[in-house]
Amino acid sequence: MAGLLRNLITLLLALPGVGRHLSNETLKIRFWASPLDAGIRNLKSDRYLQFAECAQLDFILRCGLLGKLMRQGLSFVNGSQLIRFQRPVRMFAIVEVRSRVLWFDERWAWFEHQFHSRGELCATVLVKMKFKQGRLTVPPATLLHCAGDSRPAQLDGWDAALQELT
């Protein structure tokens, strides 16, 4: 229930900024690590994914993508997620999540969500997602602006690890 409420609040707070940004920008959103999000003292690991989901929703809204998705009957589906923890986020801390499209190809788009608290990088969540229209995969280039000149090497290792699992 907390995730649904956080998504609703994110949606309402993002509405004034709808369509004011490009998808090749890094967008920031802040969250408060409440006692409901923490274990004994630190943010629970599943909450990083909830915050990343909200940050992705905020990103899609503020870049004006939600309207395009709805008009064209598109949805987005996460294929996999990867978290790298570096420092704990303490209860009651303000967490700034910096979101950007790291790269995209003809099928997939990779989002990066960096979690910062008290000026330090605490975690990075990578999300591999695709746009769907029914069963058809829609090329991300039809919706997103250029994400960089070359594919980051870190994505090659991640994709190789995913291939080993199948």
Rank of each mutant, 00 (worst) to 15 (best):
Q154F: 00
L74M: 14
R98T: 07
S80F: 10
E120T: 00
S99M: 06
Q133Y: 00
H145P: 01
L61A: 08
D105V: 01
G134M: 03
E120N: 12
G64L: 09
G148Y: 00
S75T: 15
Q72H: 14
V97H: 12
F92W: 15
R62N: 06
R90Q: 07
K130P: 04
F131M: 10
Q114C: 09
K128M: 08
M129K: 07
F85K: 09
N78R: 12
V127C: 10
L102I: 03
V97S: 04
F92N: 13
Q86S: 14
Q86M: 14
R118F: 00
R62I: 09
K132F: 05
R151A: 02
D149N: 09
W103H: 11
A123H: 01
G79R: 13
P88K: 05
V125N: 02
L144Q: 07
G119I: 09
Q154Y: 04
F111E: 02
W108H: 07
V125L: 08
S117A: 12
L74E: 13
L136N: 10
G79Y: 06
K128R: 13
F131N: 03
R118T: 01
G73F: 06
S99H: 13
V97Y: 04
A123T: 00
R87K: 15
W108G: 00
S150H: 12
E96S: 03
L143H: 03
F92Q: 05
F131D: 02
K128L: 07
V95G: 03
V127W: 01
R87T: 02
F104Q: 01
G119W: 02
W108E: 04
M70C: 13
V95S: 03
Q133H: 15
K68H: 12
T142Q: 14
P152E: 06
R90Y: 00
R100E: 04
H113A: 03
K128Q: 12
L144F: 10
P139I: 05
L74Y: 15
S99T: 15
L155V: 01
A109Y: 01
Q133L: 05
P152M: 01
Q72W: 08
L121K: 15
Q72E: 15
L136Y: 08
I94H: 09
V125G: 03
M70L: 15
L126E: 04
Q133R: 15
V138E: 08
K132T: 06
N78G: 12
Q72A: 13
S75R: 15
C146E: 11
V138A: 06
K68R: 15
G67C: 08
M129L: 11
H145I: 01
G134D: 10
G67D: 11
S150G: 04
R71P: 05
Q133F: 05
W108K: 11
R151W: 03
F76L: 13
K130Y: 10
Q154V: 12
F115L: 06
R151M: 13
F131A: 06
L143C: 07
Q86N: 10
R84T: 14
L155T: 07
G134N: 12
T142N: 12
I83P: 14
R151D: 04
P152T: 04
P152Q: 05
T124F: 01
C146Y: 02
Q72S: 13
V138G: 09
P152K: 04
R107D: 05
Q133P: 02
W103N: 00
L136T: 14
V125I: 11
M70A: 11
T124M: 07
H116Y: 14
G134R: 07
E96N: 03
L144M: 01
K130A: 11
L74S: 10
R107S: 13
Q72G: 10
